[in-house]
Amino acid sequence: MDFAVVVLVEILYAIASLVLISAGLAVVFGMMKVINLAHGEFMMLGGYVTITAVNSGVNIFIAMLIIAPLVVGLIGLIVERLVIRHLYGRLVDTMLATWGLSLFFIGIATMIFGNTTTGISSPIPGFSIGAYQVNGYNFFIIVVSILLILGVLFVLKSTRLGLIARGAMQRSDMAAALGYSSDRIYMMTFFVGSALSGLAGAVLAPLVGLVPTSGGAFIAKAFITVVAGGPSLVAGLLASSGLFGIVGQVFSFSVSPVMGDVAMLIAAVILLRLLPQGITGRFFKGKL
């Protein structure tokens, strides 16, 4: 019984962290059809910003939830103005340019922070369920990702900004004809996407030892989650995170953590072969 609860918590946690690490990429891909391969490095930067802020005496929650997203969002804004703006509509070129950016950021982080592992301790203590010890921080991640999903839903559905964003997503030419500059919408979207990446990196920072190449561990998972999710932003994100989270954890518990990752990747390959448009290309059509 205790074991079942622990497994359930672990599965929920796996799904939540997939949602968290994919949200930034999903926003950028869903709205702008840009695949940001520097997403993992934005997360890595978010982690470093948090650690730097905490070490200079800022409260950890303020550092994670406010400072990191803002800083990374601004970095994203600069990147968008300098590079990505010139490449809209050229999917492969943006992929390559952002891959170059990711290497660039790895290089910068290596030069500033050195090629060593840094980390901060988790601010929430663990507790035990029966004979098992559970990391209390996992619940924090679950809560953050639920709030994140609700927040994105709220902005897209109930605010004027969300309406404009959705309009630009469906027909950017029509939105432009109605007087909404698609250039500025894209700029904002990229800012929000980068900020979400920064948030994810910051929130996950206490769990992982951070090295400049940490981003690589996230990008593949985020990439498959977003692409397998398909065109609908929130529904796709939830559906594919749920699927991959469950597959990954079931194999982690029954075989080994490495096989969990491998099973997740194999599931992605099979899924894309069967549903080339992603899950929401077939199911939940027209949802957000």
């Binding site: 590079v83 010139h86 490449l87 070129d93 390559l96 340019a97 891959w99 170059g100 950016l101 990711s102 290497l103 660039f104 950021f105 790895i106 290089g107 910068i108 290596t110 030069m111």
Partner: peptide
């Protein structure tokens, strides 16, 4: 200067200016 940084910079610059 870190090696990766230069590799990345080369890629970005080529995609932008000399695709």
């Amino acid at each position: 200067i870190d090696n990766t940084l230069i590799t990345g910079l080369i890629l970005v610059l080529f995609v932008l200016f000399l695709p």
